[in-house]
Design a protein around this nucleic acid. Sequence first.
DNA 1: CCAAACTATAGAACGACGTTCTACAATGGT
DNA 2: ACCATTGTAGAACGTCGTTCTATAGTTTGG
Lengths: 186, 186
Amino acid sequence: MIGPEVLSAALDILNHEGPDGFTVRAIAQRAKVAPMAIYNHFDGLNGVLEELWIQGFKIFNEALTFHTEDAKDDLYHAALGYRRFALEHRGLYTVMFLRRFRYFLPSNTAIEVAHQSFQTFLNNVERSQKAGWFKDAKAIDAAQVMWSACHGYVSLELLGVNFSADPADPDEAFQLLLLTLRDGFR
Amino acid sequence: MIGPEVLSAALDILNHEGPDGFTVRAIAQRAKVAPMAIYNHFDGLNGVLEELWIQGFKIFNEALTFHTEDAKDDLYHAALGYRRFALEHRGLYTVMFLRRFRYFLPSNTAIEVAHQSFQTFLNNVERSQKAGWFKDAKAIDAAQVMWSACHGYVSLELLGVNFSADPADPDEAFQLLLLTLRDGFR
DNA sequence: CCAAACTATAGAACGACGTTCTACAATGGT
DNA sequence: ACCATTGTAGAACGTCGTTCTATAGTTTGG
């Protein structure tokens, strides 16, 4: 098999050298494969990105999935899982959410799997709403708010936009974000 | 003068064709200028981006600046201004916050003006804190939280990541985000 | 069992990119 | 009027994603 090696080489490059090093020739070289192989086994560079996107959302979906008897706790862990996924798989997060690749447009099926992840998150919101959170806000709006906040925090963190001059504990700042949203929605 | 035409051509392309169309030759053609001019009058493509960055943060800074007697109201308007800036100057916002340009790294002075904008925002947070908001959170953490939330919402909006299937009023969803944060911090 | 048909391969090649080089024209201070 | 400096156009270089070409390998049908 040659596909998996190409994907893991692509991911290696993405994680260690960032999007600027993500080229057909670099991927092929690291996978010890001819550049042409990327066109034989994938649909070019976009095909590789598409595959990473889909695998990424599969992992991401698991990181968001919590289903105990305590819905509010599940939602909290889903938000923590959101950030943990981004930090542990920053290459995948870049593909999925930061759009840093020229001419890459996810296919319809790729967009579909992304929506499924949002649905997973939305389910936790709805369960929490039954448990008394989120007042009378529409669940989908509340979910979008929480999702946006997580994405904003995490993407600034990944991009290294460090406004707080000193590197105060970033875990704590994220927690403040979550607790503030929780209190605001209560 | 030739610099301004190059910059406005670059901005035009960025606003109307997105980062993928942002090339030296395309900018030069639209500015009716030889490609070399971009190296004579700027430091290459990165120099153009740097100039857009600096001009962008100048406008951005104004969009965040409110200073009436009502600090809380000022902060609310600053957050609205954040989003309005992004929607009205999406090209600039892309340069400043989305990092979609290969090999572009802002200089130290460019990072400095970005920090000044955060400082403007932070000032509003501190004034609001004196007026009773934000409990005992550190002002800088509270500012980072609000900034992250704004950035997350706006960047998903700009990238067209539209999870709410129906295009429900996006103004309203942003307002929900702000009000939730306000209530959470109170 | 072998010829034929398909498939993967390496490597050159193409157009576009950012950037640099190379002459040549324009300009301005003395 | 001279020459040093500066801006110009356009070709050229290396790299990018992608395609083409010719060859080697593998499968398949009789």
